[in-house]
Amino acid sequence: MNQKMNDDVVLRVDDLSIVYRTKRGNVQATTDISFDLKRGEAMALIGESGSGKTTVSLSLIRKLPKNALVTKGQVLYQREGNVRDVLKLSKRQLREFRWKDCAMVFQGSQNAFNPVLKIRKQFEDTARAHGWTDKEAVRQRALELLRLVRLDPERVYEAYPHELSGGMKQRTLLALGVLLNPQVVILDEPTTALDILTQRAIIDVLNDMQKKLNFSIIFISHDLSLAAEMADIVATVYAGEIVEIGPVNDIFYDPQHPYTHGLLTSVPKLDHEQDLLTSIKGAPPNLITPPSGCKFHPRCPYVTEKCSVDGPPLAGDKPEHLAACWHKDALLKAREELAQEVAQ
């Protein structure tokens, strides 16, 4: 059943569809999401609020809310030649898988630490849950990681969570995230609650850690410039679908989907959200009754009749850069005209 996975692929998401069952109906939060993540690679998921980024990331460690249902697809992790579908793990296997194979820094997790236990205890708890009982070894490793995230290791290790600032907690969580040498670390807007300087520091720390420890990253952000700095691969998510995916430079200099283009031209100013709305007309669709055909068609400047009937496939001339649009040519022309305007 598993297609052949290249050795360097650590995570393959295959045709993943998730609905939330609510009183008002089923929310089609993600539809047919597929991508490969390679070893040591960082992938950014970008998209508006409500586009389904968090839903995708939670499903990767099978931590979706109770009302969520995976209707289709696989989440395959490959480690040392073994391929496992997370959605099929037993309860026990799942517990052992979590954090050891894939660690996650949740969106807005300023309270990620148990307030009544010292940081040391929480490192030890994590290690012990995965069969690592040598406290001294844990300590050595933890101090090393805390140093890596540029904290005063001895002090932080013996501190209670409330004695740390928000940025310090976030960095401590990053250190805890890589304690067990996971292959994949998911970061869901890890910097949103922090000031610009601390954001910078965290991104630097992340880049640094990734170089030294060679894990793969899934990085979720509204902030395109942060994504550009972090990511090797960028995937644009719209209404629960990946509408474009490709190497970071291709995405930024040669966007093939009108939505990606719209995101890029709405250069982030102070109020990012509002800016987005002006450059891409309209609002994100209701996911209980999503639009027919291409879900972006009600907002798309290049829309034709075909768009509302048929959803375009994710395709491209280059195998690594794919976009789901019928009118890439029209977009290309528009971009060239825009470039000429700017040049004049």
């Binding site: 460690i61 931590k63 517990r95 052992e96 898988f97 979590r98 954090w99 050891k100 660690a103 996650m104 949740f106 807005g108 997790s109 300023q110 309270n111 990620a112 630490f113 148990n114 307030p115 708890d125 994590t126 849950a129 995965h130 805890l176």
Partner: peptide
């Protein structure tokens, strides 16, 4: 409903703990 419980589950801690 607190974050740290959610995170503890994501950390793979045993239910008893």
């Amino acid at each position: 409903n607190d974050d740290y419980v959610n995170v503890a589950e994501a950390r793979g801690l045993k239910d008893s703990r």
